[in-house]
């Protein structure tokens, strides 16, 4: 697990062998080091698209994680907590839309349907959306950090968006000598972008 978490984000990495990670939605909590040993990850999730993708990528790549505690204040407008519950319950449609989400732009770009299904199978959600009492959050961590068994399947490799990005050969239609896009280019001698 030396290269886990596979996707960087605005969260603290604890013990990758823990059974629980904590999603604090729009809230931020700092945990004492003794509790960081009991969580795999803890951090916010502000967005209903990129934020959800990061959670799934880091969960399915670590079979030790079996529980996700959702707590903290809901992310207004984005509804990332609602969206996390929706993708866990309903998955995504053919366009990558998270079924049943109330978020503004609940789409997945970089996570496959297979990864979503793995996510659904691997973890249970402990929904405490709105909970900001750190004492209660610590109680749940205490209860679940070593509960149950490691997921039976090996880590699923989910490439981060930047690694997955296609490097296609660009077909150039512009007339300039500096390419900006397939049909926009800059002629450096005249300085014209067309």
């Amino acid at each position: 697990m030396s290269d886990w978490p596979v996707v960087k984000g605005d969260y603290q990495v604890g013990n990758g062998k823990s059974r629980i990670c904590v999603v604090t939605l729009a809230s931020h909590f700092e945990l004492a080091s003794e509790y960081m040993k009991k969580v795999a990850l803890i951090g916010p999730c502000h967005t209903e698209n990129l934020g959800i993708e990061k959670i799934i990528a880091n969960v399915v790549s670590n079979p030790n994680i079996r529980f996700i505690l959702i707590c903290g204040e809901e992310s207004r407008g984005h509804m990332s907590g609602n969206t996390l519950r929706a993708i866990h319950a309903n998955g995504i449609d053919g366009n990558g839309r998270i079924i049943g989400s109330e978020g503004a732009i609940p789409f997945i770009e970089n996570i496959s349907e297979a990864a979503v299904k793995r996510f659904q199978a691997q973890v249970q959600l402990i929904d405490r959306t709105g909970e900001t009492d750190k004492g209660k959050i610590l109680q749940i961590i205490e209860e679940y950090h070593n509960k149950g068994n490691v997921f039976s399947e090996p880590p699923m490799v989910v490439q981060a968006g930047k690694k997955k990005r296609k490097r296609e050969r660009l077909e150039i239609n512009g007339t300039g000598d500096v390419v900006i896009s397939k049909d926009v280019s800059l002629d450096t001698s005249s300085g014209i972008i067309a």
């Binding site: 960087k8 990129l50 981060a160 926009v184």
Partner: peptide
Amino acid sequence: ITPMGNGAGIALRMTLVAKAK
């Protein structure tokens, strides 16, 4: 502007393309 690592730089190129188009 998406986060860096998720295509932040593409926005710069799109600014040029949007104005050109």
